[in-house]
Computed example of a mutant assay.
Amino acid sequence: MAIARPACGPISTFSRVQILHLVQSRSERTIGELCDATGLHANTVREHLQRLIEGGYVIAASEHRTTRGRPRTLYSAATGAPDASSAVARDKVTAAARRGDIMRRILPVEASALGTDATYQLDALIEHLEESGFEPVIDDDQLTVDLTPCPHAAARPEDRPVLCRVHLSLMQGVLTEAGGPLVAESVLAPEVPQECTVQLRLMEVAA
């Protein structure tokens, strides 16, 4: 039986998952709001946010004030959209595509029917998942990503829904940042806790 590797990267602790969930559910969060919602000390929240910013998953911006006073720093999820894009995430996507091209030149791999843009999206997605402790297996025909065994299988059952939502949102952010027709649609219901499969979807491109 395969043994799941410990989770790492942006969701290595549930406190970090909570912070990601909060900024994904509503943008422009303050340190105070995140402290109140998680019960964590401000210094701990700042440390988690810094790691998330360095990973390309959160962006920080100064508050626009119309009155006197020092502007607060506001934190939002890096979704890959033009107004919520992280320079770190952009660099990761570019580097993943470059490495993918090198591997495709070296190895005799059959060209994907999904097209170049989707291929680059998958390059970025695979590197993100490996960085986060997963061992992804992509099915180009079924448009699924098999992440079994899930590193979070040992998490408390009540925490799993938040973990799944947070990571699905991270995956979608990577795909959006890479640019292309693929979107992360859902996490399929597992038959056993160790099982994890994500369903992708090809968006229709207007003529």
Rank of each mutant, 00 (worst) to 15 (best):
R5G: 11
P6N: 12
G9T: 10
P10M: 01
P10Q: 03
I11Q: 13
S12L: 00
Q18R: 09
Q18D: 05
I19S: 06
L20G: 14
L20S: 11
L20T: 14
H21M: 04
V23G: 01
V23N: 05
Q24S: 00
S25R: 13
S25F: 11
R26P: 05
R26G: 04
R26C: 01
S27T: 05
E28D: 15
E28A: 12
R29H: 07
T30R: 13
T30P: 07
I31V: 15
E33G: 14
C35H: 00
C35P: 07
D36I: 01
A37M: 04
A37I: 03
G39A: 02
H41N: 00
A42W: 12
A42H: 13
N43V: 13
N43A: 13
T44V: 13
V45Q: 09
E47M: 01
L49W: 03
Q50S: 09
R51S: 08
G55W: 08
V58R: 02
I59L: 11
A60W: 00
S62N: 13
E63W: 11
E63L: 12
R65K: 15
R68E: 12
R68T: 09
R68S: 15
G69Q: 02
R70W: 03
P71Y: 14
L74E: 06
S76W: 15
T79Q: 01
G80N: 14
P82K: 07
P82Y: 04
D83S: 11
A87D: 14
A87L: 12
A89R: 15
K92H: 12
A95H: 05
I102R: 14
R104H: 15
V109R: 05
E110P: 06
E110S: 11
A111Y: 07
G115S: 10
Y120R: 10
Q121F: 09
Q121K: 01
L122V: 10
D123K: 00
L125K: 06
I126G: 03
I126T: 15
H128Q: 10
E130L: 04
E131K: 10
S132D: 15
G133E: 09
F134S: 09
F134H: 15
V137S: 10
I138W: 15
D139Y: 07
D141G: 00
Q142I: 01
L143Y: 14
T144E: 07
D146S: 03
P151D: 01
P151R: 00
A153E: 15
A154L: 10
A154Y: 06
A155D: 15
A155F: 13
A155Q: 09
P157S: 01
D159C: 06
D159P: 00
R160H: 11
V162E: 14
V162N: 09
R165V: 07
V166E: 04
V166H: 02
H167E: 11
L168T: 03
L168A: 00
L168I: 06
L168R: 02
L168M: 08
S169E: 08
S169G: 07
G173R: 09
V174S: 03
V174K: 02
E177V: 01
P181A: 14
V183Y: 06
V183C: 02
A184R: 03
S186G: 03
L188T: 12
A189K: 15
P190C: 03
V192T: 12
V192P: 02
P193L: 06
P193T: 13
P193F: 06
Q194H: 05
L200C: 08
L202C: 13
L202A: 11
L202P: 03
M203I: 12
V205S: 05
